[in-house]
Amino acid sequence: MQDTLGAFVPGPIIQRAPHGSGPLSGLSFAVKDLFDVAGGVTGCGNPDWAATHEIAKADAWAVDALLGAGASLTGKTITDEISLGLLGINKFYGTPLNPRAPDRVPGGSSSGSASAVAGGLADFALGTDSGGSVRIPASFCGIYGLRPTHGRISIAGMMPQAPSFDTVGYFTRDALTFGRVGAVLLGEQAPDVLPSEIVVAADCFAIADEPVRRALQPVVDRMRDAVAITASPLAEGALLDWARHQRILQKCEFHATFRDWIDRVNPRFSSEVAGAFADEGRIESSDLSAAKAFRECVSKRLNDLLEGRRMLCLPTSPILPIGGDARLSDIRAAVQRIVDLTGIAGLTGLPQVSLPVATSGSIPVGLSLIGWRGGDAALVAAARTLAREFSIGLA
């Protein structure tokens, strides 16, 4: 394989033949460099992490499951440093190409995996999603992406970041492969049907930039021909409170994950990642308690809203992918905006798919569905059904 996209970790490419046959026979996959592959170091997007950790002795659960289902591993892909990023920029290994918008970022932190799939170097790829790291690259690169219900897919052998947010997700270019991979990782496959009702989150669309809204509105209008749709605000108060509380909780957890290693190693970081650790994770106990209480409250609200097999519809990202040459201030502003929407499923632990249903000019724009807790297979099935309705990604 020739890496024409800068998607794979530099150095010898780790490839593995399948150790079984099954529904994924004949397909190739790539793996974000947060997953263990026996015989190699899990580098986590940072050379000092790679230099201070041992070679993996066994494959991560998800890698083993895919190899056992007949797929072949084609390599490990670049991630944002220690998975702290939503744009796909890596100071040390480079920014993978966004094949659908080459002058713009691919989205992160599962950037290399999304780039490899969108660019045809792998049939599908594993990523991780804590704050949006599958959903955003899927939207920016114009492919399918799943963030599962928290805890639905085993994270054994995956480098954690924020344990109460971390999930194993995946990307595909087409809806049929999306279903096949989902059946393996989820252990079930639902019939290809739409939910009883889709609730359009009016306030989520309202905070999206106008090009995003303009691209997605015709898709939502067409969905009315296939399924019952209602429009309703998601939040009872300010929608941006969801992201604010997610940031507090996720920050507390990733500081706990990396604090000791940073103290021992004093690693090299980009300015953006170093800034995340500048205050040593100081959070007022009252703010932490409020965030935990808020999480319980909104989790119950969404559980109630989606009861009866409803799904929630919203833009995957409120913004289009920014330019690859963006300034640091633009990078920080973009990440802030993105979490305003990705924090919804992250905070509540619900499954979400990003569907490649629209473009703004030639730039991909993803539409998301959030499903009920544990409704991952039905969510994947809905994605396949909508793909038929809109004739997208059926190959």
Rank of each mutant, 00 (worst) to 15 (best):
V200W: 02
H150N: 10
D203W: 02
D174I: 00
N90F: 00
T172K: 06
S196T: 06
A175T: 14
G145I: 12
A190R: 11
V193K: 15
L146H: 12
R135A: 11
G157N: 03
A122M: 11
A114G: 10
S139L: 08
A116Q: 02
M158R: 07
T149Q: 04
F124P: 13
T149R: 00
A175M: 14
P191G: 13
A116F: 14
T95C: 15
R104P: 09
N90K: 05
T149C: 02
G179S: 14
A190H: 13
G119S: 10
G179M: 08
V117F: 09
R147E: 07
R180Y: 00
G108T: 08
G94R: 05
S111Q: 04
G120Q: 13
L176H: 11
L185R: 10
L97Y: 00
A201Q: 03
A101P: 09
G127M: 09
R135G: 12
F140H: 14
C141G: 04
G94C: 14
I143T: 12
E210R: 15
L146P: 11
G179A: 11
G142C: 06
T177F: 00
S164K: 07
D192S: 15
Q189F: 00
G179H: 09
T95V: 09
A101Q: 08
A101L: 01
Y170K: 01
V199K: 02
S139E: 03
D192N: 07
P102L: 01
C204G: 05
N90I: 07
A125E: 04
P99C: 15
A201S: 07
A175R: 09
P191K: 13
S164Y: 05
P137R: 02
T167V: 13
